[in-house]
Design a binder for these strands. Structure first.
Length: 592
RNA sequence: GGCCCCGUGGUGUAGCGGCCUAACAUGCCACCCUGUCAAGGUGGAGAUCGGCGGUUCGAAUCCGCUCGGGGUCGCCA
């Protein structure tokens, strides 16, 4: 080996050892006589001290520049007390090189590696191999490794079998858009990349594996978001002979362990609280609430049903809702803050945001106060528990608009009022989801979770009577406002599966064509089973407190799905297309 | 596909009709300097302002188109 010790691992206890190091010049401080070099490797940085007395090494130290690759031999020496650097993990020691060899020179990098400066993301991605040298960037990649390793070991210990499933599979038209891969052997035919190994893992259960998991790459050809990319990794897990609580218990143990070991703060509540979907929607307007803070919605319809204020009364008369968020002590919110929150509410679909500042028991600060009777105001105060000095933010609209707009307001408030800082990890389970939701444009039912999601026997009658009211065996684990796990107990007989497919508008022929394998397999002794899929990137983001998914991926793509590092996607030779039996449409061919 | 924001020396920013033959910081280069750790000092090189077109006596600054990036809605679990 060209090195025998990691620079970043050196501590006071290593004093006196002679070590051989290899790494990169992180920073250079040349005093003319004394030269200090910070040598960086995968584990951290250590200071080298070059003295003119060792002329050969000193000459090298004078000549080197940032990011040159060095091999250094020397003794680990305790620093004198006044020169100890408490800000460095290796700050109690330094190396006095007896020998210093330049293994490679380096151009000046296009951005700072030794300072945590925000650099244009595209430039970082183009030089990702340099970006990953930055300690604060690499740290998350190592974190990801440790978390994944923890997950694997946890599941191995509990008897899970890791099985790989194909990445070239059959395309199905519903759900997200598939990435397609043309077949050379059968021109005109295509594979799809899997959106998840859902069917394969169910088949593994039918095959008798009983406890399966995989860290599965999943692909969706859809536009990206800050927390969503085209290719991601999912902890895919499935168990046979289990009920909902069994899966949840195992997942909770796993994620509790991860959070305790890798979280940057404590877990707010263990065991994880459970919220019923309907209750959750009523209080937070979203099925993945951020529970690090309160600011729950309060239904204030009661006193307003016959209000003279048409915005409220009208919304209620047409089946809508009126809900408020009470913000303690913010009656003095500035005009500008109110305007910004109003804009956020509009972004969620609301036509406006009504505000009532409770300045004192006599005085209200509110553009709508003049439309409200004293009884109405008293009723609102009673329901919300508003005290003097509080601010009420109110939206009146259709239930889904109230939910989305007040959720947006609530989330913004959480950030603006500093309620999420240093709050650790607030997990919760959401259960009692509806099995199906109506797709107005398509005039059919769609699975809330996935089409294989099962339901309690007690819900069966709703499938015929009122499918919207059937609840399912779905369970989601949320943390700090992100859904990090979603799963369900699956349907395990052909009749129920056909029933659900039928409600989703699939004809017998379509069911046979798309899901025939599953339907057939269900008739050959399928065990009761269920499982989860958990996004690894979202988990790491939550643990690391990052809000950009690209930060937790070693080689991410841009938001438009391109790869600045490898310049992908790219045109291909005509010969390659010919081989696949493909022709480009005229306008796209011209671009190439 | 819609909407919003961004694109100025290597990097990060300022400048937002003439004072810009573009400023600041940092990096880079040279020299000085034996205890620094964002080392310090002196000097120097370095961008025509993403691209194209237009308005104007005059554009980095205004307008249009376009390319690239970021966010968001649609879409997506």
């Amino acid at each position: 080996m060209l090195k025998d010790t990691y620079a970043g691992d050196l501590r006071a206890s290593d004093a006196g050892r002679t070590v051989r190091l290899g790494g990169w010049v992180h920073r250079r401080r040349d005093h003319g006589g004394l030269i200090f070099l910070d040598l960086r490797d995968a584990r951290g940085v250590v200071q080298l001290v070059f003295n003119p007395e060792n002329a050969a090494a000193h000459e090298v130290a004078h000549r080197v520049r940032n990011e040159w690759v060095l091999q250094v031999e020397g003794e680990v020496r305790l620093r004198s007390p006044e020169t100890v650097n408490p800000n460095m993990r290796t700050g109690e020691v330094e190396i006095v090189p007896t020998r210093c060899v330049v293994l490679n020179e380096a151009l000046t990098p296009p951005f700072y590696i030794n300072e945590p400066v925000d650099v244009d993301e595209q430039l970082r991605l183009k030089y990702r191999y340099l970006d990953l040298r930055r300690p604060e960037v690499a740290e998350i990649i190592y974190l990801r490794h440790e978390v994944v390793r923890y997950i694997r070991e946890f599941l191995y210990e509990r008897g899970f079998t890791e099985v790989e499933t194909p990445t070239l599979i059959k395309s199905t038209p519903e759900g997200a858009r598939d990435f397609l891969v043309p077949s050379r052997v059968r021109p005109g035919h295509f594979f799809a990349l899997p959106q998840s190994p859902q069917i394969m893992k169910q088949l593994l259960m039918y095959a008798g594996v009983e406890k399966y998991f995989q860290l599965a790459r999943c692909y969706r050809d859809e536009d990206t978001r800050a927390n969503r990319v085209a290719e991601h990794t999912q902890l895919d897990l499935e168990m046979s002979f289990v009920e909902q609580d069994d899966v949840m218990a195992l997942v909770e143990e796993l994620y509790t362990g991860i959070a305790r070991r890798f979280g940057r703060g404590p877990i707010a509540t263990t065991p994880f609280p459970r919220l019923d979907y309907a209750d959750c929607m009523a209080r937070y307007g979203i099925d993945r609430p951020d529970l690090r803070f309160g600011l729950e919605f309060v239904d204030i319809a009661g006193p307003l049903r016959d209000s003279g204020f048409q915005v409220f009364a009208g919304a209620l008369a047409s089946g809508g809702e009126v809900k408020a968020i009470r913000v303690a002590g913010k009656a003095d919110m500035t005009r500008r803050e109110i305007d910004e929150l109003t804009e956020i509410a509009r972004g969620g679909g609301a036509k406006g945001l009504a505000t009532i500042g409770i300045v004192s028991s006599e005085e209200l600060r509110s553009p709508i106060a003049k439309f409200l009777s004293q009884e109405e105001v008293a009723g609102i105060k009673a329901l919300t528990g508003a005290q003097d000095g509080d601010m009420l933010l109110i939206v009146a609209d259709r239930p889904e608009v109230v939910a989305s707009s007040l959720h947006a307001v609530r989330t913004a408030l959480g950030a603006r009022l500093g309620l999420i800082e240093g709050q650790g990890l607030s997990f919760a389970w959401i259960t009692g989801f509806p099995l199906l939701e109506w797709r107005p444009g398509e005039e059919r039912w769609d699975a809330t979770h996935n089409p294989f999601c099962g339901f309690p026997e007690s819900e069966r009658h709703w499938l015929d009577e009122d499918p919207a009211r059937a609840s399912s065996y779905q369970y989601d684990l949320v943390c700090n406002g992100a859904e990090i796990v979603g799963g369900s107990i699956r349907i395990n007989n052909r009749a129920d599966q056909e029933k659900v497919f039928g409600l989703m508008g699939h004809s017998k022929e379509q069911q046979e064509e798309r899901f025939g394998v599953v339907l057939d397999a269900l008739e050959y002794g399928a065990p009761p089973e269920g499982g989860i899929g958990g996004g690894i990137e979202r988990l790491i983001m939550t643990l690391a407190g990052k809000d950009n998914i690209r930060d937790v991926i070693a080689f991410p793509k841009t938001s438009s799905g391109s790869d600045p590092l490898m310049s992908a996607p790219s045109p291909v030779d005509k010969a390659q297309l010919d081989e696949l039996g493909l022709m480009l449409a005229p306008q796209t061919a011209a671009d190439a």
